[in-house]
Write a protein that binds this DNA or RNA. Structure first.
Lengths: 353, 353
DNA sequence: CTGAAAGCGCTTACAG
DNA sequence: CTGAAAGCGCTTACAG
């Protein structure tokens, strides 16, 4: 093995006594090469410890084998699940995922999209449907298959895989209303500052809309916290909510992590869940299935979003890509999963309204 | 903009009326180009929506700007934190992280290392110190800076950043012993099957060693579960432990997630924590700081591991790389963090031994 | 079944 | 301050 630079295809060819083309064929289409020749090439590869230079082959072939993904963070089991879902499907087909984190910032998303695009991915997956004008332009100019995930845009840039956050929020509100609750609040992302969770905001907006439809607009309190929201933010927001609305009956939290934090705050204060307050989370994190009480939630399948996005990419990269608007949006839906943290109010407790 | 293929540096040069070299300089060393010329080039870039082709530039310059990381999974806040720690430091220096997941399998690690190496990263970070012979060979043959993280090998392949899992396990045992517990068990990874958590196994081994030093070897029960371990595995293991050792006094769980699952199982069974059983976790996940009761844990700093690994890489890629064995191993240590889930046994409860 | 030539899109190493 | 030539390590497109 050369002491300096790593072995090249040329060095393998030389050692095996064949041309570079033959080495190349052994690597990409072995059947095409005589068995005896193939053996010599394999021996040379092993002897030199040759690792093909994917960047060089990409340059000539025009196929990098990269799929780019732009996600807010991976320190969130939901997005990590989605990333695994993408990888699981793509790995078998020889693609590699390059991920960029935005930390919930659109300006950072723009930067990530730019540096990801410079790697010439064959498709790009991006969380959310809200982007800067420049991000949108860059994405569109790339002429790559684009899959927006985790929400359902009216007009996708290209394709989309997800569910309606707005509808999920509405469903959450209707569920709590159906339990007889009237003093209801939400814990959601603040709509200010550089870090924004637009999908969480959509859920809260849908939640608010449903309560207003029910004539309860005035009673909706939304406790905002800056993304990324987790346990601590949920606990802090719940404390504030209990102060502002001592008679609060139900809370919808923008994620199960936030809901869990809120639930723990209740326990610390001796507020019984679901006896006094019902808490509904979102996302169906494993945590909520194991906690005591178990957490009622809006179930979505984060892994499936990734898996489906990957399938959409494979399809788009194939010849039979759908051209019309149909089939370009995949709605994976959501489902209310009632568990122990929510409970119907007893009839005598119910309000007149 | 060309309808077919994306704009190239050549097309930018043509439009700006300069040579490709000038365009290249505007991109990499703008100071070198006359302001007026630079302006024309920037206009052409904007007009065409030109995105430099990083793969092509890498091929010629020999610098890909990739750093590879091989981690078990990202669906674990600890490893996701480490990934963020690496990115945080590297992003500013223009590096991009390419991650491969092993799903706790050494054969998958081998595959990932191979396909990652084909991307010609400038350095490689790999979780753990146990690798297949072939992985070790490929890593060493690459002559790249290698940083093994999340443990401290006796003889690192190159460099290492982490802490001693074995010592952490011993410290866990000594802590529970110091509280007066004698009927002690551990919940750890099973050492069979294709998926293995070698770092978790090391913690359990250290735990067992400390108990044996204390003459309590006979009392150690280890409840194994296949990785990745989380809430459910912890709950199942705790149920089994309570069946096997009804008089159990303390449990060390290989991670906070497992510990939380165990704690919830205790609550479901009316077993008071820490009243009847003390539970000690590992990893200092945010969950443990918010749960009720809060979870005593062995605190390690996952983000710092990533951050430090990135610094080590930057240093190794620089000229002043340390050559001797000194400075090649960074021990970030750990610390027992007693919280509410562990409690000392009252004197009258204590065993004679 | 195998190979010689050309070129993917940039940057290096010169030269002026 | 700017440019012409060569080449990074492969694969395409031929040819035999």
């Amino acid at each position: 093995m050369a002491p300096g630079s790593p072995p090249t295809m040329r060095s393998v060819a030389r050692l095996a006594g064949v041309s570079m083309m033959t080495v190349s064929r052994v690597l990409t289409d072995p059947e095409m090469v005589a068995e005896e020749t193939r053996g010599r090439v394999h021996d040379a590869i092993a002897k030199l410890g040759y690792v093909p230079h994917r960047g060089a082959s990409s340059l000539r072939s025009g196929r990098t084998g990269f799929i780019a993904a732009v996600l807010p963070t991976l320190v969130n089991a939901n997005f990590a699940d989605t990333a695994h879902g993408i990888t699981g499907t793509l790995r078998a087909r020889g693609y590699q995922l390059v991920v960029g984190y935005t930390l919930y910032r659109l300006d950072e998303e723009e930067r990530q999209v730019h540096s990801l695009l410079a790697r010439r991915p064959e498709a790009i997956v991006v969380a959310g449907t809200v982007h800067t004008r420049e991000t949108t332009r860059a994405l569109l100019d790339s002429r790559l298959p684009i899959v927006e995930i985790w929400d359902l845009p009216q007009h996708p840039l290209d394709r989309a895989v997800g569910f309606s956050n707005h509808e999920a929020g509405r469903a959450a509100a209707r569920f709590l209303l159906s339990l007889g609750h009237r003093r209801i609040a939400a814990i959601g992302p603040s709509a200010e500052g550089p870090a924004r969770d637009h999908r969480g905001e959509a859920r809260v907006a849908g939640f608010r809309a449903a309560l207003e439809e029910a004539g309860l607009g005035g009673d909706v309190a939304v406790q905002p916290c800056p993304p990324p929201m987790s346990f601590t933010e949920g606990a802090v927001a719940m404390a504030e909510l209990l102060r502002r609305m001592p008679d609060i009956e139900a809370v919808f939290a923008v994620s199960d992590l936030v809901a869990f934090g809120a639930m723990m705050e209740c326990r610390r204060r001796g507020v019984d869940v679901p006896g006094r307050v019902s808490i509904l989370g979102f996302g169906d994190f494993e945590l909520g299935r194991q906690s005591v009480p178990t957490l009622s939630t809006v179930r979505i399948d984060a892994y499936a979003i990734g898996e489906r996005a990957a399938q959409v990419i494979v399809e788009a990269l194939g010849r039979d890509a759908p051209q019309g608007p149909e089939g370009r949006i995949v709605d994976l839906g959501f489902r209310i999963e009632p568990r122990e943290s929510t409970r119907a109010r007893a009839p005598q407790e119910r309000h007149l309204g």
